[in-house]
Amino acid sequence: MSDKKSKNNSRREFLKIGSLFGVGVAAAGAAAYSGFASQDGHGTSGETILSESEQKIKVLTEDGTLAEIKASELTPIKKDEYTDALQSQGREGIAGKHWAMVIDLSRCRNVRACMASCQNAHHLRDEQHHINVLRMQDDRNTEPYFMPKPCFHCDNPPCTKVCPVDATFKRQDGIVLIDNERCIGCRFCIAACPYSARVFNWFEPKDAEKDEELLYNVELNVPQKKGTVSKCLFSADRLREGKLPYCVSACPNGVYYFGDLNEDAVTNGTSGETVRFSELIRQNAGYTLMPELGTKPNVYYLPPKNRMFPFEFKGKTTLDDEHHG
């Protein structure tokens, strides 16, 4: 658990360097997706590395193995090809998967580690939430509870329906992504989403200058772009590496389970424990939010029953909000 943070960082480092020089590795039998800095610190610029032919360079191949080859054998991929590869794999998705998340409301105590790690991974501004922990109260006589709300990656997504340019789309593994190279910023999808799961880059994004040289990865939606929509991606980039989403693994309280419905298994991000999805939902009366809307969400909630923590929050809950007058 302790190296989670550093993993996030190294991943980002990876992408950053990868963007400086995409490299193809014929020897590894696959196109390399990211370059890796050589050990003696010549990793800051692609040119230096390529000119010193005797150096060995570590590369990460497409299938995730780390290989070492002579720098002279490296063939740089053109930036365009690299982006195209990211785009096409991002639009295709992972074959045979149907991702789903289970959120155990009885365990959430508003730590917001999920929100922080998500904002960190996706370079979001403080007010931009791909996942937002809400304070809910359904009725005057019911107990308030905390409810983390990511994108529900609906199977009947109202948002992708209305997109005029195919910028937001649903992949074969069920993930709804947004391509901010394509998005025209009409914000119809924001209006269409009944769960308010989408955010817009009204301002210059937080790390705009720093991310300038990054290649756009549609599965991470980084760099963010001004004038385009952003949303929860189920951390599609991490799933490809076999890792749980950022929010899921950041939670210290075991709130999140994540997994593949075609395997009927979900894994708890905190304990790493894997359970049968169908049993978990059946035994705990799992439900989806507002099923009457017909959106068919892929995020399930377990009711806030037998709460591990009392609701400690001195502020407004839903019921106190003016509009529930």
């Binding site: 005029p164 340019v165 025209i184």
Partner: peptide
Amino acid sequence: DMGRPDRFLNL
């Protein structure tokens, strides 16, 4: 009203 009027042709 568009966030990216430069991409109008995408339509």
